[in-house]
Design a protein around this nucleic acid. Sequence first.
DNA 1: CAATACAGTTGCATTATCTGCAACACGGAC
DNA 2: GTCCGTGTTGCAGATAATGCAACTGTATTG
Lengths: 269, 269
Amino acid sequence: MNSVKHPPSARDRARGEVTTVQRALNLLRIVGASERPIGVNEIARRLEQHASAVSRTLSTLEHNGFVERDEETGRFVLGVELIALASRLLAELDVVRVARPYLEELAESTRETASLSLWNKTEAINIEHVLGPGSIKHIAAPGRRNPAHCTATGKAMLSQMPGSTLEEVLALGLERYTDRTITEGNALERELRCVRERGYALNVGEFIPETAAIAAVIHDRRGRVVAAIAVTMPVFHFTQQSERQLAPLVMNAAATISRRLGHHGAQTI
Amino acid sequence: MNSVKHPPSARDRARGEVTTVQRALNLLRIVGASERPIGVNEIARRLEQHASAVSRTLSTLEHNGFVERDEETGRFVLGVELIALASRLLAELDVVRVARPYLEELAESTRETASLSLWNKTEAINIEHVLGPGSIKHIAAPGRRNPAHCTATGKAMLSQMPGSTLEEVLALGLERYTDRTITEGNALERELRCVRERGYALNVGEFIPETAAIAAVIHDRRGRVVAAIAVTMPVFHFTQQSERQLAPLVMNAAATISRRLGHHGAQTI
DNA sequence: CAATACAGTTGCATTATCTGCAACACGGAC
DNA sequence: GTCCGTGTTGCAGATAATGCAACTGTATTG
């Protein structure tokens, strides 16, 4: 007898049901997303949990170095242990090392901010940026999460992902951030087709009203999409002319980085 | 002031008692410490837990992007989510950015491997390294954990920590790694006094038999010890002469980095 | 200066989740 | 074929997490 495929318990876990660990990870993300140190009660409110539970979980996380307590305020920030875990990963990611000089080159030649993002599940994550001379700060800062449907790096990478990934993204709902955000599935699919055809993705105020960006994907030696680079600028810098100028620069840099990672042009989806 | 009066339950958490989250974090550390992708049963053996429990926890972690499954083997490695959390931290840590050029300079002038470590609870953690021309690989690699009592960066930072930290380290037990490892509390205290006096720490085969290192601490603008830099070499490169040559280089680099972080010589413990 | 409000922590009884077991599916070795 | 090993799942019992209420300490208020 073949046991039929019920949606069973571990599947529930995978779908984000209530587990203690799940709650702890959400907590960690909230601490990470906060600009300033964050207190127990504030976390509890955002998680819709009781302060006592949060306090105890934080105690465990603190003891393990995943969060740290600000000496003066007693509030929490992420801890060094995360760096310990991530730094090996980062060191092993060739793309970071290879891309950095090209980011600097891009930032200099475009006089805007250049950044590198990785794909994570259903979103892009910035991990490196080089500020251009007069550029806005904090845009494209490392650790920032870029939704797939309304950012340049997000759309660039999503356009190369298998259909299942697009479905996941659609299932999450296309949240509206500005009046330019694409919130309709078919429109997004059209946009992604367009991105594939021209080889770069645009975002003009779809996520943050004042910023625009141009992005292109990076492939590794096996042809997989591993990252994307972007040039981010204030919306008022963005014109058809700048698009014509910048797009080739971004695509060239991305292609060069891909080549240096051993990519030979064969696209394995 | 946190004058804790009772030794109560959350203290138990802090002391690493069994909690579900605690187990998940240990699991994460094991995945992170593994050189290659690691399977459910192997993790279960190391944690002395049942494979079923590990499997379920991994399921949650995977869904959250904290671990990823190697496509071919089905084994686990750390996930991009950790980079997402850590990269902001890293970007905000001035010391990393400031230190990098000096690491490169050190690596070049000494023709050995230069590295930067942060302090985490009771150990030092490498987060950056520059390989010297002919140097051994993987020593001082990012993510590597350096015990406080038998590594150069560990001893350098521990020597500047308050007594309570030393007590914590002693309480963990001074594990023996080689026949040169200091395993006796009083001997370690003497060694630390010596480190404070001469301004740099040595490790000659106390952790890994074949490697030696010289380290000095970095202070931030408030005089706090935030990091240490080290030059690591094969043990057979290490002589009294090389110590005399390298120690000033390391101390100078550390002092320069401290100065660039705004440290003015006032040591606030 | 008391009165008040809020943050953070803890003990305890209840409840809900997690664990361990046993069984199963799958794959490889012989 | 059998015999390992790995990974996953359902289930019932074991265990750890929860929510409450109480308490402390620290701001904020009148």
